[in-house]
């Protein structure tokens, strides 16, 4: 009959209190996928800028006309972001403890640049998102930005976008943000299949391409808006 001594039992309880790393990753990736879904949705919605100020401003006012939905979504996003950031930071710290003495020489065979820079791109992305919210959502970064309504009395999203991306400084920041986003997503999405145990001999290639594919799609969409303004294709 196996005897469990006190110390061991305590350790087991401790392990039980917190979700272990496999569980943490499942939850973190779920939250991350939620965020990724939003990013795709956000990009697609914003593409309406190409249809002119009426379309995009109408779209914004459509969203703002449903405050309950809007704030539920915002609360959800905030929670997902908090869970994702919190768990991944915990995992990263734990991982760092996994190898207290580093190798003097290290050569990688399989790890992609994206996978090796997840913590970095994640942190940059977080900083960028905070900046982006303060810049275009709250509007406290750029005092010269138009803070007005359009002729129909709707929030002038179009005006804000066009104003922002005529400035090379903001273009630079947003392009850097997109780079971080792209790298992060390209590893994250393929990785999520693995974390969720989805593997299939014939479809594995597809899963491997899904990350870079989605990342490219989102980033190209967003960059299209930025450069369309910067290069003067979208007029005020």
């Amino acid at each position: 009959m196996a005897v469990v001594n006190g110390e061991e039992r305590e350790e087991m309880n401790r392990a039980n209190e917190f979700v272990d790393s496999v569980g943490s990753k499942l939850v973190a990736s779920l939250a991350g996928l939620g965020l990724a879904g939003f990013v795709i949705f956000h990009m697609l919605g914003n593409l309406q800028v190409f249809e002119g100020s009426d379309a995009i401003n109408g779209y914004a006012s459509f969203l703002h006309d449903m405050p309950i939905l809007l704030w539920t979504a915002r609360a959800g996003l905030l929670t997902a972001a908090a869970v994702h950031v919190g768990l991944t930071i915990r995992l990263a710290l734990r991982n760092r403890r996994g190898r207290p003495v580093p190798y003097a020489l290290r050569r990688y065979r399989a790890a992609s640049v994206a996978s090796r820079t997840m913590a970095l791109t994640g942190s940059l992305l977080l900083a960028f998102i905070i900046f982006h919210l303060l810049h275009l959502t709250v509007g406290v970064i750029d005092p010269s930005a138009p803070d007005g309504m359009d002729v129909q009395g709707r929030l002038d999203v179009y005006g804000k976008i066009v104003h922002a991306f005529r400035n090379p400084l903001y273009v630079g920041i947003y392009v850097a943000g997109q780079l971080a986003l792209g790298l992060h997503l390209s590893h994250a999405i393929s990785s999520a299949f693995q974390t969720w145990g989805i593997e299939h001999a014939a479809l594995d290639r597809l899963f491997k391409l899904a990350g870079p594919g989605v990342a490219l799609f989102v980033v190209l969409g967003n960059l299209a808006i930025i450069f369309a303004v910067f290069l003067g294709w979208l007029h005020p």
């Binding site: 995992l91 065979r109 790890a111 693995q194 989805i198």
Partner: peptide
């Protein structure tokens, strides 16, 4: 540490154990 899905493990495994088993573990 935890798995980062980088697959360095598979690339050095002398017996070519596939990372698909990690998906199976998950």
């Amino acid at each position: 540490g935890s798995c980062g899905n980088q697959y360095e493990c598979e690339a050095v495994c002398p017996k070519h154990v596939s990372v698909r088993f990690i998906a199976m573990l998950n």
